[in-house]
Design a protein around this nucleic acid. Structure first.
Lengths: 104, 104
DNA sequence: TCAGAAGTTCGACGATCGTCAAACCAACGC
DNA sequence: GCGTTGGTTTGACGATCGTCGAACTTCTGA
């Protein structure tokens, strides 16, 4: 579990990258869950995909700067970088979270 | 130039699809241009890609429901579906357009 | 009538993506 | 120590994507 936990600084957040990160059903599910429940351990989100795939999606979100990951023992606690996103792209995350349609 | 000009209805707009459509540098350039300049003919946006590629990107935006295309002779006039997007995803487009960073 | 212009469509290509199983690593509990 | 648990990494796979040139369609203007 080397895990650099590399997260971009606020000023390095790239809109294209963030939109790409959000433009996936599984990752959108993760983001919604984090928005509702606050910080979550990586594994406690039900996604219907394998461990490896889940890890991959969390990595994409983290590297896009959407989430913050805190290591604690064997667990990783993941949370939304709401303030950072709001500072860099005001209103964006709110708009994405507002959408109820996609809950299915 | 068969061109169905198929555009989804407001209630059929899908967040994932829209975010995917916006998550590309070229298409983001198009959207910004349309936001600034209003309706534009397809070809009058400088993108640095071939005719075929440009046509492809316009198609993606249209089918995602981001743009409206009006045929007039050999030209296609493309415009942002601002109202529809605002109704379906309040604040989303505004947030995307707000970003100045990406102008390069 | 016919040449040209505006867009689309059709392969084709390399690159990236989402997915998985399997192997791996690091911490915890016994 | 040792097995277990939570998560990552590593290929590998098929699918999708962005790109192009070339052929095509449709309209326009001389």
């Amino acid at each position: 579990m080397t895990a650099d936990l590399h997260e971009p600084a606020v000023e390095d957040l790239d809109l294209t990258t963030v939109l790409q990160a959000l433009g996936d059903p599984v990752r959108l599910t993760i983001v919604r869950c984090l928005a509702d429940e606050g910080e979550r351990a990586c594994g406690t989100v039900e996604l219907g995909v394998s461990k490896a795939t889940r890890s991959h999606h969390f990595k994409v979100l983290r590297e896009a700067g959407v989430t913050h990951t805190r290591a604690e023992g064997t667990h990783r606690h993941v949370s939304l970088r709401r303030d950072d996103l709001e500072r860099r792209f005001p209103g964006l995350l709110e708009a994405v979270l507002q959408d109820q349609h996609a809950a299915v």
